[in-house]
């Protein structure tokens, strides 16, 4: 399936910056989200109720549609692990401060996890398929799998993305889960997946997989590659996020050291950062200058941010 468009807002200058992959350096711990001027994308009356995760997602979605030259997608699918958590926290704070008195409804109304996908549809007046996946670090992979099912079922163009906003309670939660936090980030990456590449050269999404409560990333990875007729040596580059010794040992046993790149060094920590990695991979494949991709123009994204979960995405030029 063809990737007709890709757009990312992150802590790097990635937005509307084709070729950003060759400019990316290690993430500065002091970095902040680089926000475009959202007034270019969202009218003030709609924008005022939105937190970062909604604004980023809308801007990226509109950018994608412009890139792909389409008016309406057939489906809008979002993966988000914590959804609109700034609004959730805001409403909890309002409950506390109202102390039994009158309660302002706005942050409640825009607190459901599907507010992102719903707001995109509302702005576009889109009546198509709309879905939100919220499975921790596998949210984006499940959104991708959903998109691929949709293309097989007959959708022409699917708008699919991963987005999360950083919030203090998230930071605390990750500490409890013993997930190493290089740098917690907010970000959104959206794509248009198309059934037909319309004759242009580009990048294909070959497969996506989501594996929860696993014992071995080796078994899942080999099964994933085999079912697509691939093997480990066919992969030019493996962009990975692994935070425990066992996972790292397994990865080293499947792939050669030269194939491996830790995307959390540039991307930071987020449960939906495999979406950033996917755009990063697409940009590298289109750029073509990475020596690792000279012979095998395939990238595998291996998301093992939570040790019991494995998300896999396979791209090919």
């Amino acid at each position: 399936m063809y990737i007709s468009a890709a757009s990312t807002i992150s802590h790097h200058p990635t937005f509307r910056n084709k070729g950003f992959s060759s400019q990316l350096r290690e993430l500065d711990p002091a970095s902040e989200l680089i926000r475009p001027d959202y007034s270019d994308y969202i009218p003030a009356m709609e924008r005022r109720r939105m937190s970062d995760v909604q604004k980023m997602s809308i801007a990226c979605s509109l950018d994608c549609m412009q890139q792909a030259g389409i008016g309406q997608p057939d489906a809008i699918i979002v993966g988000t692990s914590m959804g609109c958590c700034v609004n959730i926290r805001s409403f909890l704070d309002k409950i506390l401060s109202a102390n039994g008195g009158p309660l302002s409804p706005t942050s409640f109304i825009v607190s459901t996890h599907n507010t992102v996908a719903g707001q995109i549809a509302l702005l576009l007046k889109n009546h198509g398929y709309n879905m939100t996946h919220t499975q921790n670090s596998l949210s984006f992979e499940q959104a991708l799998m959903d998109a691929m099912l949709g293309i097989k079922e007959g959708f022409q163009h699917v708008l699919v993305g991963g987005a999360d906003e950083e919030e203090q309670s998230l930071y605390n939660m990750r500490a409890k889960l013993n997930i190493e936090q290089l740098h917690p980030v907010s970000g959104a990456s959206f794509f248009i997946l198309s059934g037909d590449h319309g004759g242009s050269e580009g990048v294909n999404l070959l497969d996506a997989g989501s594996y929860g409560l696993i014992d071995s990333i080796t078994d899942c990875t080999e099964h994933f590659l085999l079912s697509g007729g691939q093997s480990a040596k066919d992969i030019g580059l493996v962009l990975y996020a692994v935070n425990d010794k066992k996972g790292m040992a397994e990865l080293n046993s499947i792939f050669r050291r030269e194939q491996l790149f830790d995307y959390q060094i540039v991307a930071g920590t987020s449960f939906t950062n495999s979406a950033f990695a996917m755009h990063y991979g697409i940009d590298m494949l289109l750029d073509g200058s990475n020596p690792g991709l000279r012979e095998h123009k395939k990238i595998l994204i291996c998301n093992n941010v939570i040790p019991e979960n494995l998300g896999l995405i396979l791209l090919a030029a």
């Binding site: 709309n130 939100t132 499975q135 499940q142 989501s210 594996y211 409560l213």
Partner: peptide
């Protein structure tokens, strides 16, 4: 394996 959650 496939353990998923949707929230709409």
């Amino acid at each position: 394996g496939y353990i998923g959650t949707v929230s709409t």
